[in-house]
């Protein structure tokens, strides 16, 4: 009699866990990655003005750099250096992230210390290691004197040129820098042939190994903070550097080595990798991810499939961008 109840109970438990598992899977059946919207709300005139400014070297102290010097628009929005070089060749401590889809990120910069694209412009122009302007008065004055910016700002913003509108115009332009319509997005929207078998397999691995816990949403990242080394101490990795990331912003002990989870949308196009550009190849980046973020071993074949999946993520670069 008891044997039977025990057996029943055991089967029941197994059934229960399977049931729960299925239910949790069903609940999760909503895809963790979403298509990139074809556009975000913006004013085309203001964006066009911002496009001019984005490539204008007068935004830097010695007229040597524009935004585009570190965010090549025709090449995925990065500079391919380990760490970027600002005015007078000064070395920055971080790798330049892409400006494409940055409007989809919940905060800006590797440590998320900036909330909005407008604010990012405000700060970067005055950053002595990047564009090095002394003040926004200086910047506004410089732009006022040249070309017909003053007139254009008057026409488009309906008031004299000023720092706030300059920042807004560039940010408005950045809101047009999206990469919609990728093969993977088409696949998500129902076109089963948009990506190959290997990439589909890669997506399954990307989900089942748990990359999607951090890299999810429309930007496949860019919407939360995460510690590097959640399952294995990152100090064991040589060359990871001493950048404490978000800790410098908040001062919270836990925030040491915490960074904004980067978007993987254009990852295949934007080496080198990580906040300090210390990692050359996607493959190495994934090795580090599986070891330190997932705490588990992943066979090479699966990593190859994941790379195949990542290749389907970039969409069209905006026409104006090329």
């Amino acid at each position: 009699m008891l044997g039977v109840t025990l057996f029943l109970r055991q089967t029941y438990k197994i059934g229960l866990s399977i049931g729960c598992f299925l239910m949790s899977q069903a609940a999760l059946s909503a895809e963790p990655i979403l298509p990139i919207p074809s556009s975000l709300p913006h004013d085309p005139d203001k964006a066009a003005l911002g496009k001019l400014l984005f490539s204008d070297v007068r935004l830097s102290k010695d007229n040597s750099l524009s935004c585009e010097s570190c965010h090549f628009l025709d090449r995925a929005g990065v500079d391919f250096l380990d760490q970027s070089r600002g005015v007078n060749g000064q070395l920055n401590k971080r790798n330049s992230p892409t400006v494409y889809n940055s409007a989809l990120n919940f905060r800006q910069l590797w440590d998320g210390r900036i909330d909005s694209l407008d604010d990012q412009v405000r700060v970067v122009v005055k950053n002595p290691k990047v564009m090095g302007m002394d003040s926004w008065e200086e910047t506004t004055q410089k732009l006022k004197e040249t070309d017909n910016y003053a007139e254009q700002f008057q026409n488009i913003y309906g008031r004299p040129i000023n720092s706030q509108d300059i920042q807004h115009a560039i940010a408005e332009y950045e809101r047009t820098l999206l990469t919609p319509n990728s093969p993977f997005d088409r696949y998500l929207k129902g076109d089963a042939n948009a990506i190959n078998q290997q990439a589909k397999l890669g997506y399954q691995y990307f989900k089942s190994y748990g990359c999607v816990s951090c890299h999810q949403g429309a930007n496949v990242g860019g919407n939360l903070f995460q510690k590097v080394g959640v399952l294995k101490d990152i100090n064991l990795l040589k060359g990871f550097g001493t950048d404490m990331g978000r800790f410098a912003v908040t001062g919270n002990e836990w925030d040491k080595r915490v960074f904004k989870v980067p978007s993987l949308r254009l990852a295949v196009l934007t080496p080198p990798y990580f906040h300090n550009g210390s990692v050359r190849t996607l493959r190495e980046a994934i090795d580090i991810m599986t070891e330190f973020q997932l705490g588990r071993q992943v066979p090479d074949a699966h990593k190859d499939a994941i790379i195949e999946f990542l290749k389907t993520l970039p969409g069209d670069l905006p026409k104006g961008g090329k």
Partner: peptide, 19 residues
Amino acid sequence: RYGLQADYDELAKKSVLLS
């Protein structure tokens, strides 16, 4: 928390909207 929402986009948007 209960695995019914697989991405954080919405949550992130709400935080931004709040501030």
